[in-house]
Design a protein around this nucleic acid. Structure first.
Lengths: 373, 373
DNA sequence: CTGAAAGCGCTTACAG
DNA sequence: CTGAAAGCGCTTACAG
């Protein structure tokens, strides 16, 4: 276990001798007590001079600050402060993937951005918990000094750690995913939004429609959807969006992508478009990146979008380099993160917080049109 | 200042009464002392039972664990542990941008991924410091309980905070950027690598060559390079790569992009390609995303790559959706992060650590060829 | 294998 | 406006 390594390493700056500071300079740690002594005040007063949260005369304050700079004291030790105050100023974020996988998803990045905004009033930092690639180094979520934790798209596999955090009274919020427990969840209307998109496609007159979906499970089997894949689904987003599409087109053809990317969208679309006789006139993609891939696949075959093929996405992100105004379901990615942050802030101030279910809106761009007559 | 907000919020789980725990359940915090008392052992022994770092009889250990689970004790408080041990298990990462901007750069993401690997032996988490968008919420780098800090592409504007961290004896490593101080730096051979690429282009027979660069300053002025822009440059990467190109093509035409993206590459390339009479036969792009944009611009005009235009990039990332095998300088993005992590680990175990200068390699793909005769 | 004691460095009521 | 005292919750030598 990783813990072991941490323990075996000696503190970088262990106090070398019991003598007062300022002799061994760099290797000896200066404390508030040292500063107070040099300034000729009590530790309490010195503390007040730094935090500014009490009445201290300007003269005293100056003396303390002068003593601090003379000793090279950089301010109160955050570790001691956080023990005393009961707050560390850190919010944990759990992403159940490697960094490089999690940040390939523009929606997650935007959500994280919104979260940063949402917790800004706390002045807290975000502590990232991701898969390190080392199976022996578990996310040590339950030994980290966090004030609160946000789970983004996490599976129930964190249940044990989540429980431990709850026992410790640490506020938790989940953005999608179903981590278990009675944690406030921030969700979006995956099914309803997709249905809306499908209805738009149907209203244009399309009847031959296919869909390219996100993976149904972490193993990321791809290709034509089989009953086995569907039965083993663990990713709600894919399942719900498929339901929405089926609400309108019950027998819709389904091609499963291996991830949310242009490349995967391209590969998932190829077989759908291969047979000119049985070609759909519209494809519903479960993400904008997949939609961009579908468009590439169409263009590869010399098909025009939207003339020969209508394409609709999901997310409402700007796909870098895509020259179309994509028709898509715009989900409030940033707002989701912000809502999670705000819930955290409320919970930390003792209020109750509940989840939020956001609504996506249909943006009609230039990638959907009536089928050719 | 953000600090104020943190202070004004009362601790979420303030102990309500001075009585021993286990009565008010959720709102009362259970401590190791409570567990020890219930188990009928000393606090020291209880502590040993949890950390496993001492000889405790199995019977005693079991008794302690049973008491813990009876009281709902989730393990030692990380805040207290970190004060006592002098380690928090947290490594800070500073990115001088908003989350959404930083993570648009695939190289940064890969570097972060490598960093995660590099610090895996510590079992530590990454604490993200980014621009929150709120000018009143400064990155509170110097009040966070970090064991070490990695700066990624940071400007000297962090000098003051960096100094404070150094005074506190906190190990620092910088990945590119010049944060000031005598911090070990992880760098790559921007100039030499670009020169290598330019030589490849020249060897193919090109003489009419242009370059699309990264921004030269955070304000991100774009367009033709002016002496003013060049004089005010603060981004080493852009400057060094331009030097490398000029080493081979001294009078090279320069178009500055506003960011590293396909879209910006497209826009920066358009004016270069607009005039068919004065059109370059090769373009050196300072990133792969820019190169992908250059290719799009060429294709827009009906030019073939590499037949009508050779394009070379920098980074060696896979550009999602790009159907070319891009000729590029492959830089070891993941290794850079890993090296930073390993340096941190060494410094935390008391060893000295120096920086590393990595070498990039030329990958010849299918986007460069001799100019048409 | 177990316990008593000290202390990590700070902040916060509480008196003055 | 300032100081003495207590304590945040834990871990670590040190004895036994």
């Amino acid at each position: 276990m990783a813990q072991g390594a941490l323990e075996s390493i000696r503190p970088y700056n262990r106090r070398v001798s019991p003598e007062p500071a300022a002799t061994t300079a760099a290797t000896t740690r200066v404390t508030l007590a040292d500063v107070a002594a040099l300034a000729g005040v009590s530790a309490s007063t010195a503390s007040l001079a730094f935090s500014g949260s009490g009445p201290v005369s300007d003269a005293t304050k100056e003396r303390v600050l002068a003593a601090a700079s003379e000793l090279g004291y950089a301010g109160p030790d955050p570790r001691a402060r956080s023990l005393r105050r009961g707050r560390s100023g850190i919010v944990g974020v759990v992403l159940e993937e490697r960094v490089r996988a999690a940040f390939l998803d523009p929606v997650k990045i935007q959500t994280l951005d919104g979260l940063t905004e949402g917790i800004a009033p706390l002045g807290a930092g975000l502590l990232l918990f991701t898969d390190s690639g080392d199976p022996d180094a578990p996310v040590s979520l339950d030994t980290a000094p966090v004030d609160a934790v946000v789970l983004i798209g996490c599976s129930p596999k964190f249940f044990r750690q989540v429980e431990a955090l709850q026992r410790r009274g640490i506020p938790l919020v989940a953005i999608e995913g179903a981590p278990g427990g009675d944690i406030p969840e921030i969700t979006i209307d995956n099914r309803e939004a997709t249905r809306l998109g499908a209805e738009h496609v149907r209203a244009l007159g399309h009847t031959e429609v296919a869909t390219v979906t996100l993976p149904f499970e972490p193993t990321r089997a791809r290709g034509e959807l089989t009953p086995e894949i569907e039965a083993g689904a663990t990713v709600d987003t894919a399942v719900e969006r498929l339901r929405g599409a089926r609400d309108v087109f019950p027998g819709i053809r389904v091609s499963v992508a291996g991830a949310s990317s242009i490349e995967e969208g391209l590969e998932a679309a190829r077989p759908l478009l291969a047979d000119a006789a049985a070609r759909p006139t519209a494809i519903i993609a479960q993400s904008d990146l997949l939609a961009a891939g579908v468009i590439q696949a169409a263009e590869e075959l010399g098909l025009e979008v939207p003339g020969d093929l209508s394409v609709i996405g999901f997310d409402g992100i700007r796909v870098d380099g895509l020259q179309h105004d994509l028709t898509t379901l715009v989900q409030p990615s940033v707002a989701k993160g912000r809502a999670a942050g705000e819930a955290i802030v409320r919970m930390l101030s003792g209020e109750a917080a509940s989840g939020t279910d956001f609504t996506s809106t249909l943006h009609v761009g230039d990638t959907t049109a009536p089928p050719r007559a």
